[in-house]
Design a protein around this nucleic acid. Sequence first.
DNA 1: TAGTCGTTATAAAAATAATTTATAATGGGT
DNA 2: ACCCATTATAAATTATTTTTATAACGACTA
Lengths: 294, 294
Amino acid sequence: MNTKDLAYFDRLIKLKNFSQVAAEFGVTQPTITTAIKRLEADFGAKLVLRDRVHNDLTVTASGQQLTIHAAAILRKLDLAHQEITHLTQQRTVLGLPPIIENHYFPRVAAHLQERGMLENIETLEGGSVQLRNALRDGQVDLALLGSTEPLSYKTLVAEEFDRQPFNIFVSAAHPLAKRKRIYFSELRREKFVLFNNSFIHDTAFNQLARRNHFRPDVVFRARDTHIIMNLVAENVGVTYLTGLVDQHRNDVVRLELLDDEQPEFISSIAYRSSHVLTPAQEQVLAVLRGTLED
Amino acid sequence: MNTKDLAYFDRLIKLKNFSQVAAEFGVTQPTITTAIKRLEADFGAKLVLRDRVHNDLTVTASGQQLTIHAAAILRKLDLAHQEITHLTQQRTVLGLPPIIENHYFPRVAAHLQERGMLENIETLEGGSVQLRNALRDGQVDLALLGSTEPLSYKTLVAEEFDRQPFNIFVSAAHPLAKRKRIYFSELRREKFVLFNNSFIHDTAFNQLARRNHFRPDVVFRARDTHIIMNLVAENVGVTYLTGLVDQHRNDVVRLELLDDEQPEFISSIAYRSSHVLTPAQEQVLAVLRGTLED
DNA sequence: TAGTCGTTATAAAAATAATTTATAATGGGT
DNA sequence: ACCCATTATAAATTATTTTTATAACGACTA
């Protein structure tokens, strides 16, 4: 059976129009008609009902079933292509969320540099959720990921290497600046400047807010810690970040949270369990482990 | 790309011999040679190294990578075939572990009978582990499964409908027969007759034994509760089973276990999350829920 | 050391399969 | 009644896969 037919079918289910599918693939319309007929013969079942009256196309139960599997098969095939391409090239694509990149990557990069391995590494930045998808889809070979729960996905191997509490940062000019420790509930009246919600900080923050039964006033969201820190310094609001962010500034003060059962920022090295690592990738992995897991 | 090529490749990796693969598929040897070449061209990488000197075939990293995905793709394709075949037929294959079959199925069957649905149901018996695989592989559409932990597999939907403690059964002639409750540790000197280890009873039993720091003396294993009960009645040993088994005999006595944190026998209705149920299967599911979950 | 065996590779021919071209069929809208 | 946007069908064409026949390679053996 030809996977091209599955691709045609997959698009047909979405577009519900034979001619459009044909146009998308740059083939003629009868090609699609015959491809679907081939599949129907192969599976011994009608997959779609062509209702030319209402210009509509209904997917049968068998068709729905095949849709699910066809999508999975095409995804796997695509993954195989990408992975093998990466394997034959020297390159390793490393996914890094910005906080981890700022805090841990300089040390890793130094070690990679020593071994002359840095130039074969390409980094991809993004939130942990986005990177997890990129990892799954083969765009990334190895990633450092942040999470609030230990990562456990059947498709991923994750090795935890650090846990950090979240902290509150306030302007040095803020009344709370003289405190060292604080309960989250004391922040009920504060304005917050937070990370963009594609980051797990948001998950952690929401958990904590829910447990404390209030809805914090979030006045701004940014995707960069420096912007957040600048806003905090200007007393636009307070923020909730891991202690990993740059603390070497004297206009911002870090406060520890006293709450029980706080979410933690868990950092892990992750890669696909189905992925065969190249020797180069194994070496990168070894450097990551050596640098981060000691 | 033709999935036939993946099938050829998959077998080649196992057999490591082009001619044998050709023979298995009933094609000639050059067919395999060209199929592998096609794949190598398609993925832009050598997949196997033909070492005719040592009559050996080495799989490259790319080849290993493809092996993993090819197997998954072929499995999915096979699953799609099986599921669609079941969909187009009226039949529902229901997996039942023997204990659940004995205890719950009569009630379910009565309800199915009332609705004239019983004749379209085929049952497959087996241990919970075996049935979980059959479910995954598409040989079974719906299953009732026993487990000691709540079932959570990404590929399965599981709905728990009952929990039962495990009990100890002893012969009416046994010194312990006058007791109502007992600690597992008191059974240190007993001989055990147990279920075959493809059943989860074994998992539960081992847990309990480990927690009590002793290695029980298992004198016999059977795959049928009646045989076990007969052996217990004859005082060959005592057994460890759920209270679900037939208790209407006066030559065997049931004792409750007093241990904290005992394993429980969790019964669930399960089906593949990727499976589109036929109306008939939905009806069977509704009857199962109606009968078991009230 | 020539002959045979068990391998995989190659090239041309044959067989099979997929796609296009051209056209039909269907029903809705104008 | 005619046009438009559909999908289906059949024949012709093109592409792909498989077979046939044979080569090449090295190990083993008489």
